Amino acid sequence: MSDKVIKRTRDWLEQVVIGLNLCPFARKPFQAGRVRFVVSDSRNLETLLADLHEELERLDHTDAEHIDTTLLIIPDQLEGFYDYNDMLDLADALLEQEGWSGTYQLASFHPAYQFAGTEVDDPGNFTNRAPYPILHLLREASLDRGLASYPDAEQIPERNIATLRGLSDAQWQSLFGGRPGTQP
């Protein structure tokens, strides 16, 4: 099952995140093979946090030229977005507790991701929707380098929302199985 989960996640990363340029910093490490895909087989928060700790330790002991970033994929729990969101507080607390704040950062993705103040079917939510709940472990140094070399980086979220709103029905169907708010 892990191979299928990784393939589906890799396809999403390549087609949606990189294909739509939602993250202008993703292409280079992906093409260089420096993105690690890990499936957590955890079924409870304690084991998931242990998996997260293990992956952060791995990043801590591995040069960025070998592993720049990690996608920790969580296929067997946290199906509800609010449960996932609650877990993020624990994950951030782990970073703080271990002294990794400022060294690593977590980005969050979920199949039902919803930004505060938006409707469920708002196309902007799809900037953070993924096939499974995912914790994206980022190196702050890599992120800082990318942001420094990218003009108007603060405009990325607005540009991404505009990109998603501008997709044709055929593109929505191909990437997500249909336009938000429509019946498949």
Score class of each variant (00 low, 15 high):
A91S: 15
D76Q: 02
L78W: 08
W100Q: 07
G102T: 04
D92K: 04
L78R: 13
Q97R: 14
D86Q: 10
N85S: 10
G99F: 04
M87Q: 05
I74S: 01
Q97C: 01
G99Y: 03
Q105K: 12
Y82G: 00
E98G: 02
N85A: 08
S101W: 04
A93W: 04
S108A: 15
Q97F: 01
G99H: 05
Y104C: 09
Q114K: 15
Q97Y: 03
H110L: 12
F81A: 12
W100K: 07
S108K: 08
Y113Q: 13
F109R: 05
L95W: 13
L88T: 15
Y82C: 00
L90Y: 13
T103G: 06
S101L: 13
E98P: 01
P111R: 10
A93C: 02
D92N: 14
L106E: 03
A91N: 11
E79C: 00
T103R: 15
A91C: 13
N85C: 02
L90F: 14
A112N: 14
I74D: 02
L106F: 15
M87R: 02
H110P: 12
D89A: 10
L94F: 09
E96G: 03
A107H: 07
E79A: 13
L94D: 07
G99W: 03
D76N: 08
Y84N: 09
M87I: 05
A107V: 05
S101V: 12
D86M: 00
Q77C: 08
G102R: 06
E79I: 00
L78H: 15
